[in-house]
Design a protein around this nucleic acid. Structure first.
Length: 892
DNA sequence: GCAAGGTC
C-alpha cells in the first residue's frame, strides 16, 4: 500500500521522515523550492510512504470580480456577495505536487498540526487529493510533539479528520472577510473624501480594532490621571536582632495605609504622637507557601520571555518554534496548563540529568523529590503544556536562554512548593493599628531550579505580646498617587489573550498591524518599549465609541462571540450555516448603524488630526532623562500637532510647559515614572489642595482617647484658615465641644466630639475647621459609593473625571482588613495582584505575570476560575459560596 | 487598496 503523508510545513515533513524512516529515505525536489517529497518503506504497516507538505493554508477567500473592485459595489453588499474559495497563486505548485502524489497513493494521511486551523488545512489537502484521486482513503495522524514514540503511534493508529473543526474555521474566515472588507472600504472612502491628511487605507478588522482599543484606553487613563497627595503615619523601631546581630530597623505599616485628607491625617497623627508608646497586641507566626508555577502555555511563555529574558513576544515564539522543529521542545502553541494524568514525566526528567546546571536538580526529582505538577484551568485538548522533549546541550544565545527557561519551568512544575513561615507583629500606638511582617524561607524546593521567582525572607526582631516600646520614628509623611504606565507589548499580549483577541501565533502580528497602519506608535524609554495611540488611532476609537453601539467595534465582545460560535460548531451544537447566517445578520445590522453615524468618526478624527485632540494646541512629550540631566535642547515637530521636547533645560521646559516644573506632584510623578509623559499644554496647574473649607471625613476616626499630653512633635504646617463652620460628626448630627478634664498636658483644651457618642468622631477645637458631613475617610482614592459630594470634596478627591460612574469590584471588608484588590467592571479581569496604589482609581497598571487565581490574601477575595470574574459574579455560581467575594461599587 | 490565520 502506498501512503501519502502531508504535513503542515516543510520542517515537520522532514522530522516525520527522519523518525519513521530511521534515516533511510530518498528525497525528491518539487517545483516549490521549500518543499521536498521523501520516499521510504514503513515495514510496521507494510506500506510505502511518501511524505510531503503544504505551507499553511492552501486556499484563499475573496469576492468574485463583480465585488472585488473597491468601487464596484456599495460596501454593504459585501455581507451578501458570494465568497469564492480558490487555490492562491503561490499555492499552485503545491497543489500540483499534491495531485501528482495522490494519484499514485492508496491512502492520504494528514499530518497537519492538531488544532482547529490544522483541521481546516487538512480539509483543504483532502479536497485537492480527492479531486485528483476520488477513491483515495483519507486518514488523519494525531500527534502533539515531534518525539519518536508519538510519531510512530500516530502513523500506526490514524483517526478521522474532524470536519466540524474545519467548518468552524471556514465560517470564521468568511465572516472576517465580509466585516473586514465592508468596514475598511466604507471608512477608508469616507475619511479620504472628507479629510485631506488621510491618504492610506484605514483598515478595520475584528482583531486589530480591539487591539487598538486597548492602547487607546490605557493612553486615556494615563492622560487623564490626576495625582493626589496622601498622608500616612510612618512608625519604626530600631532594636537589636538576636538572629541577625546588630540593630535592625523594623517598619510598622499603618493599617489605614494612607489617607487622602490632610486634616484627618493630622488629627489622627496628633492622637498617636500624644501617646506614642507602642504596645504589641499580637504576634502570629504561621506557615506559608510560595506556589510553584503552573505548566507553561504559549501566552505565559511570551510574557515570561518579555519579563525575564527581555525578548519580544514574537521573538520568543519564533525561537520556541525553531526548537520544536529541532525536536527539543513539545509543540509551542498550546493553551493547556495541565498535564494529562497519564503523562510520563520520568523519561523527560531523566533526559535533563546530564545537564551541568540543572542535572543535579533533575536527579533529585528522580530520587523522590518529584511532585505532580499543579493543574491549571485550561486545556485545548490538542497539545500538552510546553516542555522539553530532549536535552539540548549545544545551544547558544537566545535559543539557549529560551530553552533553559522552558526546561527550568518544567522541572519547577515537577518539584514542590517553597515553604516558609510568616510572622505578623501587630501593635497599637495612640489608638492606631500598625503591623510588621517577616518571612523566613525554610524549604526553597522549586526555587532552587527556578531563579525567575524571588522569595526572600526579611526577619523581624523578636517581639512579645503585651510588650511596649517607644518607636524610633513616628512621623506624618506624605506621598502621592502615581499614574499607571502606558502599555508595553507584554501588557498588550496579556490583554489580548484574556479577551480572546487573536491566537497564540497571531497576537504579535496584530500588534504589528496597528503599528504599520499608524494607529499606534512605539516609544522607547529606558530600554522599555511603550505603545501609544496616534492621533488617528484615538480619533477612530473615540468616534466609534461615541456611537454607543450595542457591541462596540473597539471592544472585544464581538470577537468573543465569534470564538464562542466556533466552539459550538466544533461541538456540533451549531452548524456552519447557522453560524454564518447569524453572524452576517448581526454584522450587517452593525454596519448600518455605524454608517448612519459615521460623521462622529469623521469629526473625531479631524479634531485629533487638526490639533492633537480636545482643542489643545499640541501634545507635549517630555523625556525624563533629558529633563533630569538639564540638557539644553529644542523642540521637534512630529506629525500633526505633536511637539516633542527632545531636550530642555528646566527654565526652557517651563517656557513650553510651566506645569511640569511648577507642580510638585507632577514633577514627582515624572521622576517616579522614569518615562515620558504626555500632557496637554492647556492643562492648568492643580489647584492648591488646602485653603478652603471642606468637610472632614470622620466616620472612621478612631475611638477618641482622652488626650493626655501635648504632642511631642509639632504636626506639619498647614495653610488652611480657620472658618466658622458647623461641625458635624459622622452620624451627621452637630458635634459638640467638650474640654479635656483628665490630668494631662492638654487639660482644659477643647475638642469636638459626637454629642450622643454614637460615633467616634474627634477633633481639636482650635485647629482649622475639621468637620462637617457624613463621609468616611477614604482609605485609598475616593471611589466610595456614598452620597454627599460637595464641591469642595470633589476638588479634593479629583473624583470627577473619566472614571466617575464606572463600576468596580473591590473587597467588601472594612478598612484595614480589606485586601488590595481592585478591578473595573468594564475591564478584563486582572491577574493576582489587584491594584497597587500606583494605578488606583485609574484602572490598569497591573503588571502581574502571575497565574494565581486569587488575591494575595487568599482568605479574602476569590475570583471565579471560569469567568475570571469575582466569585459572586461567576456565571455558574462556582465559588460564590464564599461569602467574602468582592462587591460591586459605583465610582462617584 | 479590505480580514485573520496558517507559514517561508
Amino acid at each position: 500500500m502506498r501512503v501519502l503523508c502531508v504535513a503542515e510545513k516543510p520542517s515537520i515533513a522532514k522530522s516525520i521522515t527522519q523518525i519513521l524512516s530511521g534515516g533511510q529515505y530518498q528525497s525528491r525536489a518539487t517545483r516549490n523550492k521549500y518543499i521536498r517529497n521523501y520516499d521510504f518503506d514503513y515495514p510496521q504497516t507494510r506500506a510505502q510512504f511518501t511524505v510531503t507538505c503544504v505551507s499553511g493554508h492552501l486556499t484563499s477567500h475573496d469576492f468574485p470580480e463583480t465585488h472585488r473592485k473597491w468601487h464596484s459595489c456599495d460596501p454593504i453588499a459585501l455581507f451578501d456577495a458570494p465568497v469564492e474559495s480558490f487555490i492562491s497563486k503561490d499555492s499552485k505548485e503545491i497543489e500540483s505536487n499534491l495531485s501528482n502524489e495522490a494519484r499514485r497513493a492508496d491512502m492520504l494521511m494528514i499530518w497537519t498540526d492538531c488544532d482547529r486551523e490544522g483541521e481546516h488545512i487538512g480539509s483543504e489537502v483532502k479536497r485537492v487529493c480527492r479531486k485528483a484521486k476520488p477513491n483515495i482513503v483519507v486518514k488523519r495522524a494525531r500527534f502533539s510533539a515531534i518525539i519518536a514514540q508519538q510519531i510512530h503511534n500516530a502513523a500506526q493508529h490514524p483517526v478521522e479528520l474532524d470536519q466540524a473543526q474545519a467548518d468552524a474555521v471556514e465560517a470564521r474566515i468568511i465572516l472576517d472577510l465580509r466585516i473586514g472588507a465592508a468596514f475598511t472600504r466604507m471608512q477608508t472612502k469616507t475619511l479620504q473624501d472628507s479629510i485631506a491628511q488621510v491618504d492610506g487605507v484605514i483598515s478595520y478588522g475584528p482583531c486589530q480594532f480591539p487591539t487598538l482599543g486597548f492602547v487607546v484606553q490605557r493612553y486615556l487613563q494615563v492622560k487623564n490621571f490626576v495625582s493626589e497627595p496622601f498622608w500616612y503615619i510612618f512608625l519604626s523601631l530600631s532594636r537589636p536582632s538576636s538572629s541577625q546581630g546588630g540593630n535592625v530597623e523594623t517598619e510598622f505599616k499603618w493599617r489605614r495605609v494612607h489617607l487622602f485628607d490632610y486634616d484627618a491625617a493630622v488629627v489622627i497623627y496628633e492622637h498617636v504622637i500624644s501617646n506614642p508608646t507602642a504596645r504589641v497586641t499580637k504576634v502570629v507566626e504561621k506557615n506559608t507557601k510560595k506556589w510553584k508555577p503552573l505548566p507553561l502555555t504559549t501566552v505565559e511563555l511570551q510574557k515570561a520571555g518579555s519579563r525575564f529574558l527581555k525578548l519580544a513576544p514574537k521573538t520568543v515564539l519564533d525561537i520556541a518554534e525553531k526548537l520544536y522543529n529541532q525536536g527539543f521542545l513539545s509543540y509551542p502553541r498550546t493553551e493547556t496548563d495541565q498535564f494529562d494524568p497519564q503523562f510520563d514525566f520520568m523519561p523527560l526528567i531523566e533526559k535533563q540529568t546530564v545537564d551541568p546546571a540543572w542535572g543535579g536538580f533533575a536527579r533529585g526529582l528522580q530520587q523522590g523529590e518529584f511532585n505532580t505538577p499543579r493543574r491549571g484551568k485550561n486545556n485545548d485538548k490538542a497539545h500538552p503544556p510546553i516542555h522539553p522533549t530532549a536535552h539540548a546541550g549545544g545551544l547558544n544565545g537566545n535559543e539557549k536562554r529560551v530553552y533553559e527557561f522552558i526546561t527550568r519551568r518544567f522541572l519547577a512544575c515537577c518539584s514542590k512548593d517553597a515553604e516558609g513561615s510568616m510572622t505578623t507583629v501587630d501593635v497599637t500606638c495612640g489608638g492606631e493599628a500598625f503591623y510588621a511582617t517577616g518571612l523566613v524561607v525554610h524549604q526553597r524546593n522549586y526555587l532552587d531550579v527556578y531563579p525567575y521567582d524571588k522569595w526572600t525572607g526579611n526577619r523581624v526582631p523578636d517581639f512579645v505580646e503585651g510588650e511596649e516600646f517607644q518607636p524610633s520614628v513616628c512621623e506624618l509623611r506624605d506621598g502621592h498617587t502615581t499614574s499607571p504606565k502606558y502599555l508595553t507589548e507584554a501588557d498588550l499580549v496579556t490583554l489580548m489573550d484574556k479577551n480572546g483577541i487573536g491566537t497564540d501565533a497571531t497576537i504579535a502580528q496584530h500588534i504589528e498591524t496597528v503599528i504599520n497602519r499608524e494607529y499606534v506608535l512605539e516609544e522607547y524609554e529606558g530600554g522599555t518599549k511603550y505603545l501609544l495611540p496616534s492621533t488617528l488611532g484615538i480619533g477612530l476609537i473615540e468616534g466609534y465609541n461615541e456611537m454607543g453601539l450595542d457591541k462596540s467595534v473597539s471592544k472585544p465582545q464581538l470577537r468573543r462571540e465569534t470564538e464562542r460560535n466556533m466552539v459550538q460548531v466544533c461541538n456540533r451544537t451549531k452548524t456552519k450555516g447557522d453560524m454564518l447566517a447569524e453572524g452576517i445578520d448581526q454584522y450587517r445590522a452593525m454596519f448600518v448603524l455605524a454608517r448612519a453615524q459615521f460623521n462622529k468618526v469623521t469629526t473625531s478624527v479631524r479634531r485629533y488630526l487638526d490639533n492633537g485632540g480636545g482643542g489643545a494646541a499640541a501634545l507635549v512629550v517630555v523625556r525624563l532623562a533629558e529633563v533630569v540631566a538639564g540638557v539644553a535642547g529644542g523642540l521637534e515637530e512630529r506629525g500633526a500637532g505633536v511637539v516633542v521636547v527632545v531636550a530642555a533645560t528646566g527654565p526652557g521646559l517651563a517656557a513650553v510647559h510651566p506645569e511640569v516644573v511648577e507642580d510638585r506632584h507632577l514633577a514627582k510623578t515624572i521622576l517616579t515614572l522614569g518615562l515620558l509623559i504626555r500632557l496637554h499644554p492647556s492643562a492648568k496647574p492643580r489647584q492648591p489642595l488646602r485653603g478652603s473649607p471642606r468637610r472632614l471625613l470622620c466616620s472612621d476616626l478612631p475611638p477618641a482617647p482622652a488626650p493626655v499630653r501635648q504632642p511631642t512633635r509639632a504636626p506639619p504646617k498647614r495653610t488652611g484658615s480657620s472658618m466658622d463652620v458647623e461641625v458635624r460628626c459622622n452620624c451627621n448630627t452637630p458635634a459638640v465641644q467638650r474640654t479635656v478634664t483628665k490630668e494631662s498636658e492638654t487639660k482644659g483644651k477643647k475638642f469636638w466630639t459626637c454629642e450622643t457618642r454614637a460615633c467616634t468622631f474627634f477633633g481639636w477645637v482650635d485647629d482649622p475647621p475639621v468637620a462637617s458631613g457624613s463621609r468616611s475617610i477614604p482609605a485609598k482614592r475616593s471611589y466610595s459609593a456614598q452620597q454627599d459630594s460637595g464641591p469642595d470634596y470633589k476638588e479634593l478627591s479629583a473624583k470627577e473625571g473619566p472614571n466617575q460612574g464606572r463600576k468596580f469590584w473591590k473587597c467588601p471588608n472594612v478598612q484595614g482588613a480589606e485586601c488590595d484588590l481592585f478591578e473595573w467592571d468594564d475591564e478584563p479581569p486582572r491577574t493576582n495582584n489587584g491594584a497597587s496604589s500606583s494605578s488606583f482609581g485609574a484602572g490598569g497598571g497591573s503588571k502581574s505575570f502571575g497565574s494565581a487565581e486569587r488575591s494575595k490574601d487568599q482568605d479574602v477575595c476569590y475570583k471565579c476560575n471560569l469567568s475570571g470574574h469575582w466569585a459572586n459574579a461567576c456565571p455558574n455560581g462556582e465559588g460564590s459560596a464564599n461569602k467574602k467575594g468582592a462587591v460591586l461599587w459605583l465610582n462617584g
